[in-house]
């Protein structure tokens, strides 16, 4: 454990059903930097975030946040620790019975004793940062997918957390809001000194903001380094992923029997 890293993942194992999702993952997430975790779909990137946030328990190994083992905390201490974290969910996960304003105000109301006027100021500042101050009275059901994500981002940073976990922040965004999000993530990191973890498979955007990148596949860390060093990575699998080539050692197809046999009805299954 080095003093400069906020999160340490050590030899993490995780099994779901019969499937090994992680077989010994080691990560170290430096304080005040943007760390990207990349990898093909289905490699458990979101699962990794849930393990860091303490929502899932690993079958082996440990996750340390600021020196504390997340999975050995009591329920109360775990919730205490989560106040220092923000997480942006892929779906946004806004509370559907609260307006946009109340969604962003929620963490402030439950965790602070700020007077209403100050809650209002903070909420409007956060909404202004994501460009949705004018949408404060809408309900989540009235928002587009991109707007939902931006409101969720405003809510995730409402308490100015030390650590923020972004789960696929760029998926399904139009080019304009994608650009805004990229800028926003970078600005939050620079202005507030946030430690950020970005899980994504949008290579261009992620590499443009990340300070350090881990590539996860097959339950392991396949490569790690700065974006520049990954760009010239020699490993065939990594370079296939980073450059987005369809052909290479990483199979595009889910494991199946022979296509020719299958289509002529001679496969192993009817």
């Amino acid at each position: 454990m080095t003093a400069s890293s906020l999160v340490e993942v050590e030899n993490l194992h995780f099994t779901r059903g019969d499937r090994d999702i992680f077989r010994g993952v080691d990560l170290s997430i430096p304080r005040g930097k943007i760390t990207a975790i990349m990898g093909p779909s289905g490699t458990g990137k979101t699962t990794l975030l849930k393990l860091i946030g303490g929502q899932l328990n690993p079958s082996g190994g440990r996750v340390l946040i600021d020196g504390q083992d997340v999975h050995r905390l009591s329920r109360k201490d775990l919730f205490q620790m989560r106040r220092r974290m923000g997480m942006l969910f892929q779906s946004g996960a806004l509370f559907s019975d609260l307006s946009v304003y109340e969604n962003v105000a929620f963490p402030l109301r439950v965790h602070t004793d700020l007077p209403e006027s100050m809650v209002r100021d903070v909420v409007l500042m956060k909404l202004e940062a994501v460009g949705l101050r004018g949408a404060r009275d809408l309900m989540p059901a009235e928002l587009s997918g991109g707007m939902t994500r931006r409101v969720a981002l405003a809510r995730a940073v409402a308490l100015d957390p030390e650590l923020i976990l972004y789960d696929e922040p760029f998926v399904g965004q139009d080019p304009i809001s994608m650009g805004v999000l990229v800028q926003l993530i970078r600005r939050l990191n620079q202005a507030l000194g946030l430690t950020a973890v970005v899980v994504s498979h949008d290579i261009k955007e992620t590499l443009s903001i990340a300070d350090y990148v881990y590539v996860v596949a097959d339950g392991r860390v396949m490569a790690h380094g700065t974006p520049a060093s990954l760009d010239v990575e020699q490993d065939a699998r990594v370079s296939q992923f980073v450059h987005g080539e369809p052909d290479g050692p990483v199979p595009f197809h889910y494991p199946a029997n022979d296509f020719h046999d299958d289509i002529l009805g001679q496969g192993s299954r009817p």
Binding site: Q55, Q80, M87, S91, F95
Partner: peptide, 21 residues
């Protein structure tokens, strides 16, 4: 539906116990 739309999970991540709230 709150569970399916991850509202319970996000509440947990905000540091509020959905069992209580």
């Amino acid at each position: 539906l709150m569970k399916a739309t991850e509202q319970l999970t996000s509440m947990e991540m905000i540091g509020v116990d959905p069992l209580r709230r």
